[in-house]
């Protein structure tokens, strides 16, 4: 287990280094922040001054090694836009995103497993058809469209929930609901498929021959075996949410890391882009690790 964790950490560190190099130079391709932050008629002197303050006057390679040197001291640089450490802005946004992702995924997982399992138990029945229909619709509907329609119906017309922003629990309803739909549809399908095959397995036959009731057959004997492919997809979907649900966060004015990232790209706020990418990449690394550990917890045959 220890050597497995070590190997994983090293592999992830290598990817992270590659990511930093790629994003550092790619973001520089978007242009010079000076053009954005100073008025069009700013003097050359003011421009040089701005560049000097933000270290943009140095050759690109020098800037890069300077940045890497700072990183090694856990200094992620200053945000140009916000005049605060980039990492502060990112962690603030990430906390919001993390909460949103956690609430959404908890609901998605619980609902998809329950409904998917029951649908698999009654394959071809009315409940199964209904669940399959809605999950397919959910998995294929574009979330930006659902978000906007939901705002029109529930916020504008019915006035039940706020259109955007943050505050009490009512502000969470629409973003969570909109983010819920796609992963729910997808995971429900995977649960259903996986459960259909485990429910026809030999050990389920044994369980029936033992005289077990349906509930323990489904939720004790079949489900745990069916979970392996399911948690792979759950991890995948959770990773997408951790990256920041860019579109949904933007539509609902939700101050998450996705919105922060988009804003920073538009604002050429390089240190924030890099910090955001590193934080989310690290979070995804941790989550993949968690999933690998879950595999071993669920299936005693898997040992690292």
């Amino acid at each position: 287990m220890k050597s497995f964790l070590g190997k994983r950490a090293i592999a992830s560190a290598i990817s992270l280094v590659g990511l930093v190099i790629l994003v550092f130079f790619l973001s520089r391709l978007t242009g010079d922040p000076t053009d954005l932050y100073l008025p069009v008629d700013a003097s050359q002197e003011a421009r040089d001054n701005f560049r000097r303050i933000h270290g943009l006057d140095q050759p690109l390679m020098v800037q890069f090694f300077q940045y890497v040197g700072d990183l090694l001291r856990f200094d992620f640089g200053e945000s140009i836009r916000r005049s605060e450490p980039a990492i502060d802005a990112v962690l603030r946004g990430f906390t919001w995103t993390l909460q949103l992702a956690a609430i959404t995924m908890a609901l998605v997982t619980a609902m998809a497993i329950l409904i998917g399992s029951l649908a698999a138990f009654h394959v071809g029945g009315f409940f199964d058809r209904l669940a399959t229909f809605f999950s397919l619709v959910g998995a294929s509907a574009p979330d930006f469209w659902i978000a906007i329609v939901a705002i029109v119906i529930f916020s504008v017309n019915l006035g039940w929930v706020p259109t955007s922003g943050t505050g009490g629990w009512e502000f969470w309803i629409l973003p969570v609901a909109v983010l819920f739909i796609r992963p729910f549809g997808l995971i429900l399908q995977v649960v259903r498929g996986s459960m259909i095959s485990t429910l026809s397995s030999a050990y389920v036959k044994t369980a029936r021959a033992k005289g077990l009731r349906n509930r323990p057959i489904i939720f004790v004997h079949a489900l745990r075996n069916a979970m392996l492919p399911v948690i792979t997809v759950i991890g995948d979907q959770a990773a997408a949410l951790l990256n920041g649900a860019v579109v949904v966060e933007s539509i609902f004015g939700f101050p998450g890391v996705g919105k922060l990232m988009i804003d920073s790209i538009l604002q050429r706020d390089f240190s924030v882009i890099l910090a955001a990418i590193m934080v989310t990449a690290f979070a995804i690394f941790l989550m993949n690790l968690l999933i690998d550990i879950l595999y071993a917890v669920l299936d005693p045959r898997i040992r690292y």
Partner: peptide, 12 residues
């Protein structure tokens, strides 16, 4: 049953 490996639940 015939094949006890597949007829015993592998995860319990």
């Amino acid at each position: 049953f015939q094949d006890p490996l597949s007829h015993l639940n592998p995860v319990y």
